[in-house]
Amino acid sequence: AQAKDLSVVGSWSSLPLHKQFEVPFWTKDLPADSGGAINVKMTTFDQMGIKGSDVLRMLSDGVFDVGMTVSDYAVGDAPELQGLDVPLVATTAKQARAMVNAARPMVADIMKQRFNAKLLAIAPYPPQVVFCKGNINSLADLKGKKVRGSGRMTTDFLEALGATGVNISFSEVPGALQRGVIDCAVTGAGSGYSAGWYEVSDSLYPIPLGGWDPVITAMNMNTWKSLSPKTQNLITTKIKSQFENPAWNNAAGALKNNIACLTGNGNCSAGKPAHMKLVKVTQADLDKAHRILVQKVLPEWAKQTDKKWVARWNQTVGKTVGVQVPLN
């Protein structure tokens, strides 16, 4: 048979998920395992100069074959997709993986219906945690603070806490923290370490206030249907065993390592450890977060979303994480 050329668009080119997992899988492992049946040309959305929110739209138009993007970037076109990344319901990599697995059939249907695409994989970015200037001891201490965060659920959550959500680009955060434009900022622990945020902030609050930013990998449905069953099977099994599983297995260790690098507690393999204060996450804080989610944030989401998706979320993700959205 003739070799199939796949044009693949990866997620943020500078982050470990792309460098450690996307690139080896798509450019080495899959072509090799296919025995020459698949050729891959790979780039990333940031290198193409397009926004993460454009990836699935372009994928559905057949501009490329395979696209990867953070699920939260696509919620403008598919509000129900916010159910994949509800902040603060999963605090460990294990819980996050259970949440993603529960949501998977629903996400597959969303991909098919909204974007004419076949869901191939969902991989995690590190949890989006909180860096604060000054001393923070609990969730309540965020009240009155200006917090850099993005995404509607995170912003709604901050407002319910009495904090102010501020929209600032990643590269401006250190200056903004230093000059007092903001008091806290949310990002992945690893990104915060490599961008030197510890130089301008004091407390690290390791709760996933920005969620886990799961990255969706999907293929244009016409491309998918043009593949032989054998190739389809090869892709689905290999992407699980050689991309998704390793990425998830790495996630838990990566978070521990990143926290060690930021706080100096434990072994940091990435470089010189910093000495931020690690705030302890208490059960009381998590309970409070759940209350806010159920009373304020999730009902807002339910208002913008078709009820059938919300009901389905309750039965799948909601059951797994122990949260139910009131449906009325």
């Binding site: 050329d5 044009s7 100069g49 454009d54 372009m58 057949g62 501009v63």
Partner: peptide, 16 residues
């Protein structure tokens, strides 16, 4: 290009 990249023109113009 194997793909009709012009289809992305509108999205690129809007996003930029």
């Amino acid at each position: 290009s194997f793909f009709p990249l012009v289809r992305a023109l509108g999205q690129v113009v809007w996003s930029s």
